[in-house]
Design a binder for these strands. Structure first.
Lengths: 157, 157
DNA sequence: TACTTAACCTAGCAAAATAGTCAACTATTA
DNA sequence: TAATAGTTGACTATTTTGCTAGGTTAAGTA
């Protein structure tokens, strides 16, 4: 499980898609504009996401992308794994005999960590994130309202 | 918290160092040979580890590197952070106003995940890994012994 | 049928990160 | 003083990243 900006882009885009595709498909052009990611880069990412069976493309006018599964059934680890080239991350290719003693043990350990992080990210779904966003948006709106109230107060003073 | 091969190299090298530097300092040449990492790349990594106060270089014959702290006081997150350039990983630089609505929330979420992974890796020390390795070595030795026994048996049959 | 829209595909490119090389230099110790 | 080994900097090659430009194909719409 590699954690880079590429994966973050993918998660961002999927979150945007989940948020806006409840009624009709969302075009990559829209996502590109909202998230300031280049259209062609998004196309690359979504080609992988599509091949991984996470999204479905709808051609023609009114088309775009939509999710294949429910947001509660799409987790972060899968999104990141879909856009990252599957690398073996080991020199021995699981042969467990690459070095005399140390190397394979270290790589074992690393794979262990990687597994744990993957498990953690697997436990978080798009639905979880959406909910979190919803909460935050409410918080922001409330904050704005509060600000507004303060301004009015201030004005009336 | 970015997870790449660079960090893995650093952890591997530190684990090797912890394992072999109990009596005297360990040269990078030795680590390079054992872990098949290029010497000069190790030099780059250890320059950062030294600046981060995790290792100490000892010059002259019989010199090498040794750990500054006890293995139980060195955690994985610090090792990875030491070799990775500190990037802000956000477009808005914490201004929280980079986009109209979505982007900053996503980046918030990402930073949250990153924090959690960091916390997890912080909870694992070199000592923990050494212990794990020790256990594995015993397992391997036992496996070898078993093999040996089997061979003898086979021979005597 | 012609036109538009948007997915889908390919090639290539520039910048950055990764991985490694080479050479000169300095401090330490035998 | 000679050998050892860390320190530093410049330099190169490869891979990944993010993006541009140009198509083709499928599905709607006038």
């Amino acid at each position: 499980m590699r954690l880079t900006t590429k994966g973050r882009y993918a998660v961002t885009a999927m979150l945007d898609l989940a948020f806006h595709s409840q009624i009709k498909p969302v075009t990559l052009t829209d996502i590109a504009a909202r998230q300031t990611i280049s259209l062609s880069y998004l196309e690359q990412l979504f080609a992988r996401l599509r091949r991984a069976g996470m999204v479905k493309g709808v051609r023609g006018p009114g088309g775009g992308y939509k999710l294949c599964r429910k947001t509660s059934e799409i987790n972060i680890a899968d999104i990141i794994a879909a856009v990252n080239e599957p690398i073996d991350s080991t020199k021995c290719g699981g042969e467990a005999n690459c070095q005399k003693d140390q190397a394979c043990l270290t790589h074992d350990l690393w794979m262990g960590l990687s597994e744990q992080i993957k498990d953690y990210l697997k436990s978080i779904s798009l639905a979880d994130l959406l909910e979190k966003n919803q909460v935050q948006e409410v918080a922001i709106r409330q904050h704005h309202d509060a600000q507004h109230t303060i301004e009015i107060h201030h004005h009336q003073d």
